[in-house]
Design a binder for these strands. Structure first.
Lengths: 189, 189
DNA sequence: TAAGACTAGTCACTTTCATGACTATCATGG
DNA sequence: CCATGATAGTCATGAAAGTGACTAGTCTTA
């Protein structure tokens, strides 16, 4: 029951089609969850059956018809219940960390390539988050916006995403530097 | 195929029993993955069947007998192959972020309680990581250790875990402060 | 003007993860 | 001397997440 609530939270923004949701959850734009189209469509079906969301069909001319979903009262209640329930601690769970854990025993070259790829990915997301934050707060300062803005949830999660990716970038760069220096030292012997 | 490689990477440390592994992966001590005992035992069984690890029984007097596992050559090869393969990007996936995303619509009191619980948890882990790092590097400085230490993988992943938890702590505290100030402002109207 | 990307979604299937309940024995504290 | 808690695991089952393959029309651009 996890993606479930992420979808409900996303629908707080207003009406969204399944396809729009996939855009948000897909390429990592959603900074608080991630899921693939198939999972989202399946979840939407389940949620609609449970009457936590309701959809209405929109007939379109130039492109396929779509269904726009919105939260029902029951859906909002469910989300509130979920928020009140105790959260389990979260952990990093990342292939790349497993690989670095094994760094002393495996091919360093391949590992460094992956670390720099990840660093590049992180930089791209940092960029994206910066733009999203700016667009959410408009011409107000961050402090101003957080004090008086009317919808700060997405802004706050975006801030976490930003910090997380900055952490990724810094760690990847640092790790690369360490591995490179050891490589150099090793060659000299 | 993810826990699988995390277990292999953990066994690089040397021989470990299933029970010792659970201690490492359990309460979040392992900074690069997390799993419950049942999953680990199941994974160990699978890995042994696939001959990626091998176990030997140790008969004990005062406590139950145990099986110590170690990597086989095939296991090391598998780990190397895994490390060379492209890593998929990782995402934060956290209940708490979903809840904050909904912050504008749900009970703030309960949410703040969870945020401060999480902050406390993060502080505890920061402490733990600090101790682990110190014990790994001994009396050397970090730079010294990273240049010349003979096993730096766990140290590097530990650094990522530390930074992650510092990020959690800071974000939780900041978010609490923001929510509290809004609450205050709201009451005054 | 054909290839490729975008909108909009579905079906079937597998792999992973998580949970609860259970069995033993021994050591320690109150 | 009895209740915890640590050591060392096992079994069964359910929930969640991930993957591949597909349909079908439209818009863009090289």
């Amino acid at each position: 029951m996890a993606l479930r609530h992420a979808v409900l939270a996303a629908l707080l923004e207003g009406e969204l089609s399944g396809y729009q949701l996939t855009k948000a959850f897909d390429l990592g734009v959603a900074n608080f969850w991630y899921a693939q189209p198939q999972q989202l469509y399946a979840e939407l079906t389940r949620l609609e059956k449970g009457r936590l969301i309701a959809g209405r069909e929109v007939i379109q001319e130039a492109r396929p018809n779509k269904r726009l979903f919105h939260l029902t009262d029951a859906g909002l209640a469910e989300l509130e219940e979920f928020t009140a329930a105790a959260a389990k601690p979260s952990f990093i769970r990342d292939d790349l960390l497993v690989k670095v854990q094994a760094a002393d025993y495996v091919d360093t070259e391949a590992l460094m390539a992956q670390l720099s790829e990840r660093a590049a990915f992180a930089r791209a997301k940092i960029d994206l988050f910066g733009k999203m934050l700016r667009s959410m707060r408009g011409d107000r300062t961050e402090g101003e916006f957080l004090r008086h803005g009317h919808r700060i949830g997405p802004y706050l999660t975006c801030l976490r995403g930003l910090a997380f990716e900055e952490g990724n970038r810094d760690w990847c760069e640092h790790t690369i530097a360490v591995l490179r220096e050891r490589q150099k030292a090793h060659v000299q012997h």
